[in-house]
Simulated scan of single mutants.
Amino acid sequence: MGLALDEPDKNDKVVIINEIKVAIDTDIEPYTDGLTLDFDQETNGLVLLENENSCC
Results as ranks from 00 to 15, higher is better:
Leu3Met: 11
Leu3Gln: 10
Leu3Trp: 04
Leu3Ala: 11
Leu5Asn: 12
Leu5Ile: 13
Asp6Asn: 14
Asp6Glu: 15
Asp6Lys: 15
Glu7Lys: 14
Glu7Ser: 12
Glu7Trp: 12
Glu7Val: 02
Pro8Gln: 01
Pro8Asp: 11
Pro8Leu: 01
Asp9Ala: 15
Asp9Phe: 12
Lys10Trp: 11
Lys10Gln: 13
Lys10Leu: 14
Lys10Thr: 12
Asn11Met: 08
Asn11Glu: 13
Asn11Arg: 13
Asp12Met: 06
Asp12Trp: 11
Lys13Arg: 15
Lys13Ala: 02
Lys13Phe: 08
Val14Pro: 08
Val14His: 06
Val14Lys: 07
Val14Asp: 03
Val14Ile: 09
Val15Glu: 04
Val15Phe: 10
Val15Leu: 10
Val15His: 00
Ile16Thr: 15
Ile16Ser: 14
Ile17Thr: 09
Ile17Pro: 01
Asn18Trp: 07
Asn18Ser: 04
Asn18Ala: 05
Asn18Thr: 06
Asn18Gln: 08
Glu19Ile: 07
Ile20Glu: 10
Ile20Asn: 13
Ile20His: 12
Lys21Ser: 06
Lys21Arg: 12
Val22Leu: 05
Val22Ser: 05
Val22Gln: 01
Ala23Lys: 03
Ala23His: 00
Ala23Trp: 03
Ala23Val: 08
Ile24Gln: 05
Asp25His: 00
Thr26Asp: 03
Asp27Phe: 09
Asp27Asn: 14
Asp27Arg: 14
Glu29Cys: 02
Glu29Asn: 11
Glu29Thr: 01
Pro30Ala: 07
Pro30Glu: 03
Tyr31Trp: 10
Tyr31Val: 11
Tyr31Ile: 01
Tyr31Asp: 04
Thr32Lys: 01
Thr32His: 06
Asp33Met: 06
Asp33Arg: 13
Asp33Phe: 08
Asp33Pro: 03
Asp33Val: 08
Gly34Phe: 01
Gly34Cys: 06
Leu35Gly: 07
Leu35Ile: 07
Thr36Asp: 02
Thr36Tyr: 02
Thr36Arg: 15
Thr36Gln: 13
Thr36His: 05
Leu37Ser: 05
Leu37Asn: 01
Leu37Asp: 02
Asp38Met: 02
Asp38Gln: 10
Asp38Thr: 03
Phe39Asp: 08
Phe39Cys: 06
Phe39Gly: 00
Phe39Ser: 00
Asp40Ala: 03
Asp40Met: 01
Asp40Asn: 09
Asp40Trp: 02
Gln41Trp: 02
Gln41Lys: 14
Gln41His: 13
Glu42Arg: 03
Glu42Asn: 01
Thr43Glu: 07
Thr43His: 04
Thr43Phe: 11
Thr43Met: 04
Thr43Val: 04
Asn44Asp: 07
Asn44Ser: 11
Gly45Phe: 09
Gly45Thr: 04
Leu46Pro: 07
Val47Gln: 07
Val47Trp: 04
Leu48Gly: 05
Leu48Ser: 00
Leu48Met: 03
Leu49Pro: 02
Leu49Asn: 09
Leu49Ala: 00
Glu50Asn: 10
Glu50Arg: 13
Glu50Thr: 07
Glu50Gly: 06
Asn51Tyr: 00
Asn51Thr: 00
Glu52Trp: 08
Glu52Tyr: 09
Ser54Phe: 15
Ser54Gln: 14
Ser54Tyr: 14
Cys55Phe: 15
Cys55Ser: 15
Cys55Asp: 15
Cys55Arg: 15
Cys56Phe: 15
Cys56His: 15
Cys56Gly: 15
Cys56Pro: 14
